[in-house]
Structure formats: C-alpha cells, structure tokens
C-alpha cells in the first residue's frame, strides 16, 4: 500500500524535461489550440528568434511531439508545424505532473 502511494506521488524526476523548458513549453502550448501554424506565426507569438525556434523545433520533432512539413508557396519556403497526438498527451501529462509537484511544495 505504501509502495503504491510512493509510485503515484509526483516527483521532480517525473517531469518531462523536454516539455519543461520554457521556450518549448510555449511552442507546444501555442500549437495546442491550433491545427497548424507556420514558422512566422510561432516566431511572432513566442518572441523567439529564428535560430532559437529552429533549434527547439528540431528537438520537439525528434521527440515526436510535433510534426514539421516544409513546403513552398510560390517561391517562398514555408515551414508548417503541428502538435502530434503524442505531443498533446505529453503536454497534458506534463500539466498533471506539475499540478502534483506544485501541490507538494511548501507554501
């Protein structure tokens, strides 16, 4: 019984560090309410530079949390990002974990 409670209780180790980083959390949260967004939109909304956004985008893509599609609209390149199913699950799970972790912190 005691072991079960220990397993269920949140701990810092269970925090998904990939989602926890503020820039990536912001990218995922913005994509959560959208079907898709392009690179320009996310740069505007998150305030990240092109290089930073590109770097975080690659990490999230490697983890399978977002999908990235590169297309051309005429001669203009367009990079379209969307949150995958596992990305959505990861964000929900992160929220639950953080709620649990925060509740254990001293006031």
């Amino acid at each position: 019984m005691r072991r079960k409670r220990t397993e269920a209780s949140p701990s810092f180790e269970t925090i998904d560090r990939l989602v926890h980083e503020p820039a990536r959390l912001s990218i995922m949260a913005h994509l959560y309410v959208l079907d898709f967004a392009d690179f320009v939109y996310l740069m505007n909304e998150t305030g990240l530079t092109r290089g930073n956004l590109s770097s975080h985008m690659s990490k999230l893509e490697d983890a399978g949390y977002i999908s990235v599609e590169k297309t051309f609209e005429g001669k203009i390149p367009r990079t379209v990002l969307s949150l995958t199913g596992s990305g959505r699950d990861a964000l929900r799970s992160y929220r639950r974990t953080m709620e649990g972790v925060v509740s254990t912190l001293p006031e």
């Binding site: 309410v33 967004a37 740069m43």
Partner: peptide, 13 residues
C-alpha cells in the same frame, strides 16, 4: 499572412 504567418485554429474550437 506575410506579416503574422499562417495558422489554423483547431477545428473543434
């Protein structure tokens, strides 16, 4: 679109 980018609000919303 060239200024704020392209996006689509989730269909359910």
């Amino acid at each position: 679109k060239p200024r704020i980018g392209h996006f689509q609000i989730e269909r359910a919303r």
